[in-house]
Structures are given as structure tokens and as C-alpha cells.
Nucleic acid binder design. Sequence first.
DNA 1: TGAATGATCACG
DNA 2: GTGATCATTCAT
Length: 193
Amino acid sequence: MKPSEHNFQKVLPSQFYLRDTLTVARSLIGKGLVVRSRGELLAVEITETEAYLGQRDPASHSYHGPTARNRSMFEGGGTCYVYLSYGMHYCMNVVTGPVGVGEAVLIRAARPILGEPTFFKNRKTRDPRLLMNGPGKLAQALGINLSFDGETFSSDRIRLVNLGRSTKTITATPRIGISQARELPYRFLAGEV
DNA sequence: TGAATGATCACG
DNA sequence: GTGATCATTCAT
């Protein structure tokens, strides 16, 4: 389907986010992320995610309970949690489960659907492979920053939608860039490894 | 392989 | 208040 034929109207229902976090992480592969940035509509298809299981997961920001930074992780399924990573990159998460639980899915990578010229401009690269193949790169391409923290994924500004596609193969592997619980296969990718 | 770069958090 | 750590990226 050409980008112009998308309407991005099939917003994911709140029920989507209330399932088990690993299920949500897997289900987000192939879904559409739509962002309105300075009046321009941007859209990508999610290709890589990681689950962070809250207070039972030592690698999760919410492992030690609520803090000023992770506050939005506890605000319930469908909330957007954005944080500054390594002092220079933003990373975006989809909160899952009921209010107070503190679980979320990190969006790690995607492929462009709409707004590609803006993505290249934001990323300052010419190589399509380096456009959004990492959480910091994805956020930079989409213009995500802390002002999106606490937003809900059914808003006009940022939303998650069903693209009506099915992803044939989804692979699970260990998570990237963590030092705790490295062995757990909580990372999900579209396709084979 | 390591520098960049700054917020966060546990600890005392 | 302090220092180790960090759900990363990029150039070397």
C-alpha cells in the first residue's frame, strides 16, 4: 500500500496494552507509529521491540519502584514513556498493564512509511540502513523528545495504529545494552535473525 | 574499542 | 553530596 493510501485511523484499543507485556512486545511488531511533528504527519512500521517487566525485572527502569524519571511507566497501558539515554539520546516506550504496575515495551527500530525526507533530515545521514535501526536513532528521526513523556498513544500528536499487515516471522533474542538479566529472550524482531 | 555527555539513583 | 552507572551512537 502506498503511503498516500494509508489513513492511520485504526488506533489500537486500550485493551491492546492490558495484556501480558511480552505479548504486547511481540504484538507491536508490524504496528504503525504515527507522529504529528510541526504539522507534518510522520509514520513508521515497528520492526523491533524489547519488553521490560517492571518490579520483577532487574533491567527495568521501574525495578526499584516509582521515581521522578519513570513516573509515566506507572500511569497505565497506552502511556508513552520517554527518557534521555546516555545524556544524549531519547528512547521511547509503550507502557503496558494496569496503572501502578510499571511495565513497558521499548521501541527499538522501525521502517519508514511516511515522511522519509524529514527522517533523513533529522538524522543527518544518507544511508537508509542507519535511519531508524536503534532506539535513539528512531526517536531522533521522528523528533521524539521529553515533551512526549506521559502522552497517550491514542492522541492526535502520537498514536499507535493497526496497519492491517501481518508479520510472518517474529524472532525472540536477548535484550541489547543491558547488564542485568541478559539471558532472557525479551527482544522481538520482524523476520529471521 | 572507546569517547561523548548528563541525568539518575543508591548510598552514606 | 557523590560517584558509578547507563534500555546509545558514532568515529577511530
